[in-house]
C-alpha cells in the first residue's frame, strides 16, 4: 500500500507567556492508504494535537506534512480547507452537529459544499445506512448521544474521504453505543477503503485498528 500521509520531523510548540511548551517533538509518521491507526496515550501527551495537525487545523512549528504527495505545511488556510473539504472527514468526541440544522441537513451541508449533484438523496441514503431513517428531520437536541454521533459520522464520511480523523469518537457514549459506533466506523473504512486515524483511551477500541501508536510526552514510542 502506498503512503497517504507523511509527517516528517514535526514539532509543535505553544508559547504561554514567556514559557515555550513543546507539545509534539520530532514526530515522523507514515500512514498508508486503507490503513487504520489508533493513537493512544495519557491526557496531555499530544494525541489530539497530532490529529489537528494532520487535519490542517493547526500549523506545526517545524517539519513537513505531506498529504497525497502534496506538502500542506505552508499552504494558505483556504487551500487547506479545500483539501480537507474533499479528502478528510473529522469526527469529534462532542459530535458538534450544527444545532439549528436537522440530522439530514447536517449531512447534506457537506455534500452540497462538495457540489454533489443530488445531495439530499445522498444524505438520506447515508442516514438510512446508519439506522437513522426515522430521525431525518430531528434537530440534534432531539437525538440521543449515539444518534448524534452516527449523524456526525455520516457527515464526516459523506464525501467518501481518503482519511478519517476521529477524536475519542466514543468518549461521550455508553458501552452499548460505543460498540455500535465503533462497528459502524470500522465497517465503513473496510468497505470504502478509507484510512482512519483514531485517538482513543479505550483499549478495546484501540485494538480494533491495524496499527497502534502510543504517544508519550509528545513523542511516538
Amino acid at each position: 500500500m502506498s503512503a497517504l500521509l507523511k509527517l516528517k520531523k514535526i514539532n509543535l510548540k505553544y508559547q504561554t507567556g514567556k514559557e515555550n511548551i513543546s507539545v509534539l517533538k520530532d514526530i515522523d509518521l507514515i500512514i498508508k492508504k486503507k490503513e487504520t491507526v489508533s493513537v493512544v496515550g495519557e491526557s496531555g501527551s499530544g494525541k489530539t494535537s497530532l490529529i489537528m495537525l494532520i487535519g490542517g487545523l493547526e500549523r506545526p512549528t517545524s517539519g513537513k506534512i505531506i498529504f497525497q504527495d502534496q506538502e500542506i505545511t505552508n499552504i494558505n488556510e483556504d487551500e487547506v480547507s479545500e483539501i480537507r473539504k474533499k479528502n478528510i472527514g473529522i469526527i469529534f468526541q462532542s459530535f458538534y452537529l450544527i444545532p439549528n440544522y436537522t440530522a439530514f441537513e447536517n449531512v447534506a451541508l457537506t455534500l452540497e459544499l462538495n457540489k454533489f449533484k443530488n445531495p439530499e438523496k445522498e444524505a438520506k441514503l447515508l442516514l438510512e445506512r446508519f439506522g437513522l431513517k426515522h430521525r431525518f428531520n430531528n434537530l440534534p437536541s432531539q437525538l440521543s448521544g449515539g444518534e448524534q454521533q452516527r449523524v456526525a459520522i455520516a457527515r464526516a464520511i459523506a464525501m467518501k474521504p481518503e482519511l478519517i480523523l476521529a477524536d475519542e469518537p466514543t468518549g461521550n457514549l455508553d458501552t452499548e453505543n460505543s460498540i455500535m459506533i465503533s462497528d459502524i466506523l470500522f465497517e465503513y473504512v473496510k468497505e470504502e477503503g478509507s484510512s482512519l486515524i483514531m485517538v482513543t483511551h479505550d483499549p478495546k477500541l484501540a485494538n480494533k485498528a491495524k496499527r497502534k501508536i502510543k504517544i508519550k510526552d509528545g513523542k511516538i514510542k
Binding site: 483556504d78 480547507s81 473529522i90 458538534y96 450544527i98 451541508l109
Partner: peptide, 15 residues
Amino acid sequence: NMSIAVRKAIGFYSG
C-alpha cells in the same frame, strides 16, 4: 461559534 468552527472543520473557507 461552534457552528462556524464545524463549518471550517468540514472545509468551508472563512471568506
